[in-house]
Structures are given as structure tokens and as C-alpha cells.
Design a protein around this nucleic acid. Structure first.
Lengths: 340, 340
DNA sequence: TAGTCGGTGGAAAGCGCATTCCCATGCGAC
DNA sequence: GTCGCATGGGAATGCGCTTTCCACCGACTA
């Protein structure tokens, strides 16, 4: 059965194409009640389904939103996507999704594909990389904007895109202060490669705040920005713990720049028989849902991921001129893993 | 800057629209090398980006895939989505995403919206509900299929859609056998409301296998299909554990029909001071990543979620006639939570 | 009663591209 | 030297819809 076209509906209702269009698709001009009724009935009889592609072509806007995330199966991004999705639904928009597996080149391709599909706006979520790696996406995004598209970034600035900024610096600072308030003085920084900007922001702010609070970063460990990276750091952290114990010092407090690293680290420490928080304290960042039921429960900085997704969509659909560079909050959540 | 159209490219290359089209979009008929070169150059100069909407209209196929999941922020679905996304990328397809917040009516709307966007195929992932609740989606899907669309379901059958079936029955049976093999005899079934078909399939097969193995289901608890549902069951399970201890019986073994319920249950038991696996044993289903680092680690049935997403997309893009009702495997993973 | 104006319905011109014909050209075969 | 055929390029049509522009009609004012 071929799909009914608007023309078929118009024929059946014995009106013109124009009238049928006005009735069926939120036009400002509504025909008389009798016609409206006839058209509605005809559409229902025929099981008419509007062709969004044709509509898009005629209107030259699609109502589509492009969302590119670095890994949709990662809770960080799926939570953002959830918020974005729900906001999009409220605004009556559909979202095109791309997951790049953390490959900057794939980010570029995704933006290009979205541009081809004439999305009204694209949201790029995830940490930025080095300037060199970011260049291709930035350029693609600039082209997209130049031809009338709107660009939003959830993370760090990229070209002239609107930015929804995770409170990395503020959160890390607050965490450092909270930990200092608990009496921690000797910290280990578990960070990620320099190209991961998010990790650098958190590590940098944490370091500064520790110094300001007369604490000390006794060592910095660099590992992959993942659970396995945290796991890999376990042996070194265990050594540090032992050294501290022998020197009669307080157990060190590790700040892992993301929760998953903290979890991997704790897993390894458990295998090594190092108690958390008895012999080492651990704090993370993000407050992924898992943390709540983790044993020991893990101190972290909670950031409103879903809300950030919503904000991004709000910025994407905003009327021109409305700049929605909203500030997003954070909250330090002290749990067992840093208890003294 | 207005976007360049194919016509602009043709003008600049001094060829006809037809020739430009043939060069730029994989047509079977390729013009002579000289023209190809000229057109390519012109396109590059103008920064030409094909308009996928117009292409879709002219070709009357979009190359779009619709994916509807019940909650994109749930690891179960985001893992499926990850697999689907990666497969779609390999096949050069874009995916339109909808997350329904577990509302059957929203599932219907999502399918309708996808139909309007003329997606080539739609994949509906997630448990089916009661026949009455499923009816609207089923009908919408049937309409979609009648007009040439392809429908794939990840879960249980829905109309005549191709089905990718999670091995709920086989997995639950295997789990029951494995637990019996460990010597467990007295089971508590922690299930969900009858409308959640996935829960019923797992509970039913588990019950049958327990009976076949001369074990016994001493009690069935019905709660929400979520972490909080598991949490809510904690008090009753604690009572059962105490009763068993007083009667000098083996600690009961709880089968929670999904991992998140198992985790919620264990959280509540911990609060109540009931040891797992000392006083109660707990097993789940799905093998969400979290389980690995949970304390105690949780016995479960591992199913290849990402693979299921890939299969769904494979079925969606398959040439007509190729029926890809692939069987998906499962693996029982015995961990600490059921140790004797 | 004539003149105007707001409102209503329809005709038609695109939106950007794929694709079907159709024509011109050049080559080999007879 | 002519005919036939293959090949390459272009004109034109249509995909399904929106929207401007026009014509028309009835009501209201002077």
C-alpha cells in the first residue's frame, strides 16, 4: 500500500492542496470550520502521515537536533543524552544521535553528516582535546554555523559555539576545600593524559586549591581516563600508602579526576589488601549513579548531567538572541571513602 | 552565507545539473574524467554540502534508522544503543533516537514520528507490556510496515516485526541449574509486575527449572522493576533470612529478575545488617558493568547487549529476504553473592 | 447604493536533488 | 563512404509539501 500524499487527502476532501496543508500543519491561517472538518476526516480515512522530509525541504528547516557524544554507553554521556532527549521531546524536536568512540576525527564526520541532514542545531558533548585534534571539528562546526546552523558544546569552548560548561574547576576547588575541612593534608592526584582537557581542568583547580589550603600534592599519577586507568594506578598508590604508614604519616588522600578511575583504583586496592578509607582515602568526580551503592561509598563531586543535556537543548531551540549560557551547579558529596 | 546548491556547483563547473549530480553522488553512470575533475573542484571551492533532505525526497528513501528505547540513561539500553550506533556507522546510516521513559504511549508516538520522517526501518528495544498496552505501538508499527518500512523488535514479539530475543528463558534456566549445582535448594523469587514481560519470562523459566531440579521457591516477592523495587524488598528478605536461620535451614537464595533489583536489595540488606552471602544469597540478571566492582560481586546471567543492538541494525539494513533472527547467547557468571 | 475592506479558498511557484529521456558525437563495420 | 551503435551530456520532470499571490465574496461604511 503506497502512502497517501497530501494531494490525495485534498482530493478526497474536495479542497485544494493549499487548504489541506493549512488544516493539517499548524499554519497561522485556518480555513473555515466546515472545510477543516472535511480535511481532517479525509486524512483519517486515508491514514495520512505527513512526510517530514518534504516538509523540511519546503520549509527549509528540519526541526532536527544533532547530538554527538563520545560514547553513548558510558553513563556520563547517556545521562546527558537522557536529559537532552527529554527536553527535545518537550520542544517537539527529534534528535539524531552519533557516538564517536572518543575519536576526534569521528566527531568531525558526525558534524558533517548532521550538516548534510540540515539539522537546525548540533550539540557536541564531551571533553575537548588538544588544539590540533580539535581543529577539524571546530572548522566543520564553523562552516555549519556560517550557513545558519546553531552550535552548542557541552564541555569546553570550541570555536564560537555556545558553551554549557561542567563546573570542573569550581567543583574540584570545592572538593579540595571540603577535604581540607575534614583534615586531609597529603594528596595524591590521579589524572589523565594532557590532551584530556576535562581532566586538566579538574586537576589544575584541585592543585591550586590544595596549595591555597596549605595542603600538599605528594605525587601525581597519570593514567588512562577510564576504570582501567584507575586500576592500573593501584599498585603505586598502595606503595605510597605503605610508605606513609611506615613514616607514621596520615594515610594519603587520592583525588581521581573521574569516578570510574576511582572505582578502578579501589578495585585494585582491594585486591592488594589495602583498606579504603583505612589506609588510603579516595575521592572521585561526577557522581555516577553506581557510586551510591558502592562499598565503600565514594566521595565525589555531583554535577547535574541530565540538566546539562536539557540546557544544551534549550540553547539549541532558543529564539535567536536568547543566549543561554547558564551556569551549572555542583555539590560535594562526602562519603565513606574519605572518612578519617 | 547561504549554502551552495548542487546547481551552483554545476554552474561553476560549467556542466549541467545532471552531470554534477552523477559525479557527486555515487551514480552508476560516471561522466568523463575531465568533467569529474571540474565538478569535484567546483564543489570543494564552494564548500558544497549535499542536502540529505532533498536527496531523500528525490530518491524516496532516507537512509535513516529509528531507534526507540525505554530509557537511554539506563545502562541496559545505552549498551544496546551503543552497539546499534556502532553498527549503523559501519553501514553508513544515521540513527534517530527516541527515549520513552517506559511509557507505552510514548513508544507509539515515537514510531509515528519516525514514520513521518520516513525512516527506512525502526528498532523498538525493551520489554513488551500487556497486550492491551502494546496494541497502539503494534498498530502503528503495522501501518509503518504496510507502507514499506521495516520493523525490528529487541525483546518480545510485537506484530510481525523481526525479533531479536534476549535469552531470558534460557538464561534463567541455566542460572537455576548452576545455582542448584552449587547446592542451593531454597529460593526466593524477586520479580516485577505481571505487565513486565521480560520479568515474567525470567521468573517463569527460573521457577520451572527450580522445580525440575527438585529445588523449591519458598516465596515470591513482587516489586517495581528497578533499583528501588529491590530496595523495597529488603525488609521481607531479611525476615525470611532470620526465619531460615532460626529453623536451622540453609540461607535462602534470592533470584532478582534484573541486576538493578539485586543491587537495591543488597543495599537494603546491608543497612539491616544482613550479610550477603552469609545470611542470604543473591543472584541477578543482565550483567551490567557495575556488578564487576560491586561488593560483594554479584552472580548473574550475562547477555550480549551491544551485540543485540548490532544484530537489530543488521536486520534493519539487510537486503530484502535476508531474515536475521539470530539467536543470542548467554553465560552464567557465578560470583561472591551466591557463594556457600 | 456604490465603494472598501477583511476574510477565505485556490493556483502556482518553488525547496534541492535524482533520474528518465533524448540528442549529438564519434567510432567501427560493412 | 554510409549506416548503426555505443557513449557522453543535458533538458525536463517529479519527489511531497509550504507559501505567496490572486481572485472572489459578503459585509460594512459613507
Amino acid at each position: 500500500m503506497a502512502r497517501a500524499r497530501l494531494q490525495d487527502v485534498a482530493d478526497r476532501a474536495e479542497v485544494s492542496l493549499a487548504t489541506a496543508s493549512r488544516v493539517l500543519n499548524g499554519s497561522a491561517r485556518q480555513p473555515g470550520a466546515a472545510l477543516v472538518e472535511r480535511v481532517r476526516a479525509a486524512a483519517a480515512d486515508l491514514g495520512y502521515v505527513v512526510n517530514a522530509q518534504a516538509q523540511a525541504l519546503a520549509r527549509s528547516r528540519t526541526g532536527l537536533l544533532g547530538l554527538v557524544v563520545q560514547d553513548i554507553s558510558d553513563p556520563y554521556f547517556s545521562t546527558i543524552a537522557g536529559g537532552a532527549q527529554s527536553a527535545a521531546r518537550e520542544h517537539g524536536r527529534m534528535v539524531l544521535l552519533a557516538s564517536t568512540e572518543r575519536d576526534p576525527a569521528a566527531e568531525r564526520d558526525a558534524v558533517a553528516a548532521f550538516a548534510a541532514h540540515r539539522v537546525d542545531a548540533v550539540v557536541v558533548a564531551g571533553t575537548r582535546w588538544s588544539a590540533a585534534e580539535d581543529a577539524p571539528v571546530a572548522e566543520e562546526l564553523a562552516t555549519f554555523q556560517a550557513s545558519g546552523g546553531r552550535a552548542i558544546v557541552v564541555g569546553q569552548p570550541l570555536g564560537t559555539a555556545t558553551v554549557i560548561r561542567p563546573p570542573n574547576a569550581a567543583g574540584a576547588t570545592a572538593l579540595a576545600e571540603a577535604l581540607a575541612g575534614q583534615g586531609h593534608r597529603r594528596f595524591v592526584l590521579l589524572s589523565a593524559p594532557a590532551r584530556v582537557v576535562t581532566a586538566q581542568e579538574r586537576a589544575g583547580a584541585f592543585t591550586a586549591a590544595v596549595a591555597a589550603g596549605s595542603g600538599e600534592i605528594v605525587e601525581t599519577i597519570e593514567q588512562q581516563f577510564s576504570r582501567d586507568g584507575g586500576y592500573a594506578a593501584g599498585d603505586r598508590v598502595a606503595e605510597l600508602a605503605r610508605a606513609a604508614a611506615e613514616a607514621g604519616e596520615d594515610p594519603p588522600c587520592v583525588f581521581a579526576v573521574t569516578d570510574v578511575m576511582a572505582i578502578g583504583l579501589i578495585a585494585r586496592l582491594r585486591e592488594l589488601g589495602v583498606d579504603v578509607p583505612g589506609q588510603v582515602r579516595v575521592a572521585g568526580f561526577d557522581d555516577i549513579p553506581t557510586l551510591r551503592d558502592h562499598v565503600p561509598s565514594v566521595t565525589t563531586v555531583s554535577i547535574p548531567l541530565a540538566e546539562m543535556g536539557r540546557l544544551a537543548v534549550a540553547a539549541a531551540v532558543a529564539e535567536d538572541g536568547t543566549d543561554v549560557s547558564a551556569a551549572v551547579g555542583h555539590e560535594v558529596v562526602l562519603r565513606e571513602s574519605t572518612a578519617r
